[in-house]
Nucleic acid binder design. Structure first.
Length: 519
DNA sequence: ATAGGGTTAG
């Protein structure tokens, strides 16, 4: 099993007690308690901190809004109430409100409208997206799609368009672009095409950007025939495929292994006055690499170097060549490519170096990996953290746990901070092997080195579950305190498991203590 | 708009 795919249920089977932890009064705690300062919390006894931690997690998991939403929920509430009261033309109501739009406000309104007023929420989202003082980030698009389950339930998009139509709402191009971006985020190719077909009803038609989005969606889906017919359609409506269109198509053709067609299109674009840039070249080159035509890829790389300018290979181009050479066991040549890129003033990144390190480790040439690390650290292009972290990950992947452990230990002892992936892997490994005290000590050490700023809640939870199961309650309480101070929330399944473990394993005395101190 | 192991927070 891969280390990074460890999930708690593979090891910690929840037992089947006949009660739910939510029903336990000993775990009951208010949200008000959660807001107490860490200092107050530290003063509390260790066992009560576990119970408090659990209870706040239980309370929170039933809320769609996180704590931070509670403080300023009023602005969303105002919008919601306004919209509810006025009914009818949502956009007109919104325009009259002179709202101070920001990401927080948008997010709150979305949450407020879901699920009983989804259509209103979406219309607000579309309206907000064209508001002059505000722009949706990609993050916001992904949040909106996730919350409203657009991918699972795409008909809501058409419901909104229908409502616009019925109400005689004027819909402009910008509003459609918000809708297309939602389709893009939700990976809805057919629906995006459906929206494109609806545009004429509102007196609009797709432009290059819109066509490119739809074509890309079909390419990503592997439906190259539809993508091609849309490209043809573009020329028929006096739109012309541009650099992005060609890039998307070439990438799509490469993805489905139609390399000759990709080459044909590459030639065609040049002949038609659209000069490929480094991204287009790189897409084609990557296709050659992936389908095993390394020689053709190298020839293309040479061509790019000769051509220069917009076609000059960049670190992404070189990295993909190096990566595929390493995959094929051709690390000697890969190193030559590294020389070549550096000679052209193109510095490797951690991705480049990581590919090479993995290649060396797979060929059992760790000493070459060390040599490479010295070289790139010396030149200042990649940090020790990134290099040695890659080395540890690679050693773990090829099942050399002792060597990985050794490098990891050396890192810690010499003050080189392992990155978060390595920390996660090593912590989970100890947990999986049931070495919970070791895991806790490691956690403590990493925490002191300030390496744990971006460890996910999953890792914390596995650690806490294991400590509770083995009844290392002092450590568990300390961990729970750290989690609380960092605002890391336990996810529902872990809450259940930990509560059950404590209940089941707990002798009367422990239960009593928890009950007594939990108030 | 390009690779990658998963870079903030929004």
């Amino acid at each position: 099993m891969k280390l990074n795919s460890i999930r708690p249920d593979t090891r910690f089977k929840p037992n089947s007690l006949p009660f739910r932890p939510e029903s336990l009064c000993l775990l009951h705690f208010s949200v008000k308690g959660f807001n107490q300062s860490p200092k107050t919390f530290l003063e509390m006894t260790t066992l009560s901190s576990i119970s408090r931690f659990l209870s706040s997690s239980i309370r929170l998991k039933n809320h769609k809004l996180s704590i931070s939403h509670f403080s300023t929920v009023s602005s969303a509430e105002t919008v919601y109430n306004h919209l509810q009261r006025n009914g009818g033309n949502i956009e007109k109501t919104l325009a009259s409100m002179r709202l101070n739009l920001d990401a927080k406000c948008v997010s709150q309104v979305l949450h407020r409208c879901y699920p009983t007023q989804s259509q209103m929420g979406l219309r607000f989202f579309i309206w907000a997206g064209v508001h002059s003082s505000y722009r949706h980030s990609y993050f916001m698009f992904s949040k909106a799609c996730e919350l409203y389950r657009i991918r699972q339930n795409p008909s809501v998009i058409f419901d909104v368009l229908e409502a616009y139509s019925v109400e005689g709402c004027s819909v402009n191009m910008k509003m459609f672009k918000v809708v297309f971006n939602m389709c893009k985020e939700a990976k809805l190719a057919d629906e995006a095409l459906g929206v494109l077909r609806k545009m004429p009803e509102f007196g609009l038609r797709g432009d290059n950007v819109v066509y490119n989005v739809v074509i890309r969606l079909f390419c990503d889906k592997g439906d190259l025939d539809m993508a091609e017919s849309l490209v043809k359609e573009m020329s028929m409506v006096e739109l012309y495929p541009d650099l992005i269109t060609y890039m998307v198509m070439i990438k799509g053709l490469c993805n489905v292994g139609r390399l000759d067609d990709a080459c044909g299109l590459f030639k065609f674009m040049k002949e038609n006055g659209c000069l490929p840039n480094v991204v287009v070249f790189s897409a084609l080159l990557d296709g050659f690499c992936r389908f095993g035509d390394m020689e053709r890829a190298l020839k293309l790389l040479e061509e790019m170097e000769k051509e220069g300018g917009d076609c000059s290979p960049n670190v992404v181009t070189y990295t993909s060549v190096i990566q595929y050479l390493c995959d094929k066991g051709r690390t000697v040549e890969a190193l030559l490519v590294l020389d070549r890129m550096e000679a052209r003033g193109c510095l490797p990144t951690r991705v480049t170096v990581s590919s090479l390190i993995t290649g060396f480790v797979k060929e059992d040439q760790v000493e070459l990996a060390y040599k490479l690390v010295d070289r790139v650290v010396e030149s200042g292009s990649v940090t020790k953290t990134d290099c040695y972290s890659s080395l540890v990950v690679s050693l773990e992947r090829v099942r050399k746990p002792e060597e990985a452990e050794k490098v990891f230990r050396t890192m810690l002892d010499s003050g080189v901070k392992p990155n978060s992936l390595v920390c996660t892997i090593m912590l989970k490994k100890s947990c999986l092997e049931g070495r919970m005290v070791d895991a806790y000590c490691l956690f403590d050490e990493l925490e002191k080195m300030e390496c744990l700023s971006s460890i996910d809640s999953d890792t914390y939870s596995i650690l806490l579950v294991g400590l509770c199961q083995q009844r290392h309650l002092v450590q568990a309480a300390k961990l729970a305190r750290v989690m609380l101070s960092k605002g890391i929330k336990l996810k529902a399944p872990y809450v259940d498991i930990i509560a059950e473990v404590l209940m089941k394993s707990g002798d009367e005395e422990l239960l009593e203590q928890l009950t007594r101190n939990g108030r």
